[in-house]
Design a protein around this nucleic acid. Structure first.
Lengths: 111, 111
DNA sequence: CAGTATCCCCCACGATACTG
DNA sequence: CAGTATCGTGGGGGATACTG
């Protein structure tokens, strides 16, 4: 999933948005990055079960879609930080009502 | 996808909601049913490319999740109408901001 | 009309090993 | 630490045929 995978094929906005957040771990990545910027290894620990390969490819796609910013610090050992772009922040905001709906109606947590 | 597929495994509300709308055609089904109740054949025509099998299984899952109501009318030939439940209406409402985000930032349609 | 019943396929995701 | 490189797999989805 990434960057207009289906050019001009989207039926509506939700359809298009689903293509951006459609990866198995993507909304969880956004969820974590919404709190604070994270390094690769941090994200891996925050998302139990994700493999390095999948985490890397999801981050590449989110970066290509302009949702995530990748900052490389020239240090030894290597250090890379991922954070949300302003577009990513706006996406998270648009996701908030859906999160509230899920909490209330699927998880059964009222407020 | 349907009805607590991963009991107690959800990390957050968005994660849980994604499980409900995670099927390939589900948000499009919701999108159409938001306009008006539809018959099976109508939905099939409204969603070019979907097969009967997949449409049927998606509708079964949405029904099991309490999102869609299935009303059978005893006529000849058989007639079945699908509509949103109140839960489905609330889900669509929660999806609206995501749709607006997609229209604006993916499709490039400002308002 | 509104679906099942089969068979099949692809690819997103996973497991493991290795590297700058 | 932050990733690539390879190989393998499961199941969601597609094609087609058939039925109450």
């Amino acid at each position: 999933m990434a960057t207009v995978r289906r050019p001009g094929a989207y039926v509506c906005g939700i359809d298009a948005a689903m293509d951006v957040i459609g990866g198995k771990w993507k909304v969880l990545i956004l969820w974590e990055l919404n709190e604070r910027a994270c390094r690769f290894g941090e994200l891996r620990r925050l998302l139990p079960g994700v493999t390095e390969k999948v985490l890397a490819s999801h981050l590449r796609e989110l970066e290509a879609d302009g949702i995530v910013h990748r900052e490389v610090y020239d240090e030894v050992p290597a250090r890379v930080e991922y954070s949300l772009t302003s577009l990513g922040v706006s996406l998270n905001g648009a996701l908030a009502p859906l999160g509230a709906w899920g909490r209330e109606h699927v998880l059964g947590i009222v407020h």
